[in-house]
Computed example of a mutant assay.
Amino acid sequence: MNYEFKVTKTLSPKQKPDPDTLEFGKVFSDHMFVMNYTEGKGWHDGRVVPYAPITLDPAAAVLHYAQEMFEGLKAYKTKEGKILLFRPDMNAKRTTKTNDRICIPALDEELFVEAIKAVVRVDADWVPEKEGTSLYIRPFIIATEPFLGVRSAKEYLFMVILSPVGAYYKGGLAPTKIFVEDEYVRAAHGGTGYSKIGGNYVAGLKSQEKAHDKGYSQVLWLDGTERKYVEEIGTSNAFFVIDGEVITAPLEGTILPGITRDSVIHLLKDWGITVSERRLTIDEVYEAYDSGKLSEVFASGTAAVISPVGELCWKERKIQIHDGEIGELSQKLYDVLSGIQLGNVEDKFGWTVEV
C-alpha cells in the first residue's frame, strides 16, 4: 500500500548538537510524526509536523489508567551517506502484540514502518555521521480520550519522535557490573512482561535505584514466581555462555521479545554455535562459575547492541566473569551486528531497510 502523509516544515530549524557531546534522549529533531485514532473512523490524518508540545485534557485516559505503549529503534548513516533502519518490521510486529495486550486498536504494520520512514526522511540531516552515533527513533501511542473509568479508550494518538544519540560506550565497549534482584519483581506469567509499555519500566525503578546505590549499573531480574530463574538484565535480554552453550530465557510471556535478541540467536545459529532458549536458575549460573564453565555473560538491546557483563552480585557474593574483560563472543556479536547496522558488514539476512 502506498501511504502519503502531509508534511509541514518547521519555520524555525534548531541548531544541530555537537556530535562529540551527544547524550541519550536529551535532544530532539525538528519534526515529528502524528496520527489520530477515533472510534468509528480508525487511524487517520497521518502527518509530519514541527516538533512541539502536545495538548492533553487533564482527564486523558493515559494519565489515569496508563494505556500507552512505545517502541525503540535507530537510524544509521553509512559511509556512502545512506540512511538505514534495522529490522523495523520486527518493531511493527511487536507493536501489534503490545497493542493487543493493552487493548489499543491495531495499527497496520506497514503504516508503522512508513510513518517512521516519512519523518526520518524529513529530518535526514539529523542522523549524525560520527562513528558510534545514530538517530534514536521513539514511536509511541497514548490514549487521549478524556474520561475517568476503567475501559479501553476511544481516542488515541500515534507519534514518532527522533533524537540523535552518541555512542553508548563513550570509551569503547566495556563490561558492566550487574546486581541480581531477588526482592522486587518485574513481570509474572499472565502479565505484561512481553509488552513494550511504560508500566514495565516504572516497576523496575526501585530495584534499579537499589542497584545503583550498591555500585551496580543494572539488575538481573529473576522470575516472579520462584525467584530463581534468570530473565532479563535491566531493559535488555540476557545471555549466558556455559560450557560452550549460549543460553537465554525463553519467550514465555515474562520477558520482552527483543529484536537484538532475535538477531543474536540468528547469528549464533548461522555460526554453528549451540544456542538454547530455556530456563536457567541463578544457582546454575553460580555453579557454572565455580566449575569454570561460565565463560561469558552479556545483554542485548537497541541502545547498546551488546553489553558484556564483567561482574555479578547475588546474595552479597560477587563473581567476576571472563576476568572482568570483554569475551570473544560478545565482541564478535557487537562487531557484526553494529557492522550490519552501519552497512559495513554484509547483510545476508536482509535486516536493513534503506530510508
Rank of each mutant, 00 (worst) to 15 (best):
335 D>M: 05
213 D>C: 08
169 Y>C: 10
1 M>L: 11
75 A>E: 03
66 A>V: 12
139 P>E: 01
13 P>A: 01
140 F>W: 02
21 T>A: 11
103 C>T: 10
81 G>Y: 01
337 L>A: 11
187 A>C: 06
174 A>C: 15
213 D>L: 10
242 I>K: 06
213 D>I: 03
218 Q>K: 01
14 K>F: 00
193 G>T: 06
173 L>Y: 02
23 E>M: 13
153 A>D: 11
58 P>L: 06
143 A>C: 03
29 S>E: 11
313 C>G: 07
328 E>N: 14
88 P>W: 00
16 K>F: 02
295 S>K: 14
92 A>M: 08
350 G>D: 08
76 Y>A: 02
89 D>N: 13
168 Y>Q: 07
44 H>A: 06
143 A>W: 05
46 G>R: 05
309 V>G: 04
348 K>H: 15
193 G>R: 05
126 W>V: 12
29 S>T: 12
176 T>V: 15
177 K>W: 01
273 I>M: 07
120 V>P: 15
201 Y>F: 14
33 F>Q: 08
174 A>K: 15
348 K>C: 12
262 D>E: 15
214 K>H: 06
184 Y>M: 06
190 G>S: 04
297 V>K: 07
216 Y>M: 01
292 G>M: 02
127 V>M: 05
239 F>G: 12
84 L>Y: 01
290 D>S: 15
191 G>A: 12
41 K>Y: 11
298 F>R: 14
332 K>A: 10
267 L>E: 07
4 E>L: 12
3 Y>S: 14
29 S>I: 01
208 Q>I: 01
136 Y>H: 11
158 F>A: 03
200 N>H: 04
208 Q>F: 00
239 F>M: 13
343 G>D: 09
279 R>F: 03
288 A>I: 00
85 L>V: 08
300 S>I: 09
248 T>Q: 08
264 V>K: 09
208 Q>H: 03
245 E>Y: 00
133 T>S: 10
253 G>F: 02
289 Y>N: 15
197 I>S: 11
222 L>H: 00
341 Q>S: 05
102 I>F: 04
312 L>F: 10
178 I>F: 07
271 W>L: 07
225 T>W: 04
23 E>K: 15
47 R>Y: 04
108 D>T: 09
127 V>T: 04
64 H>N: 11
122 V>M: 05
237 N>K: 04
81 G>Q: 09
31 H>E: 09
139 P>H: 03
148 L>C: 07
141 I>F: 02
99 N>V: 01
79 K>W: 05
108 D>P: 15
293 K>F: 00
13 P>F: 04
70 F>M: 12
91 N>I: 11
188 A>I: 13
199 G>Q: 06
175 P>D: 04
169 Y>D: 11
46 G>D: 05
345 V>L: 01
27 V>Y: 10
231 E>L: 00
83 I>S: 09
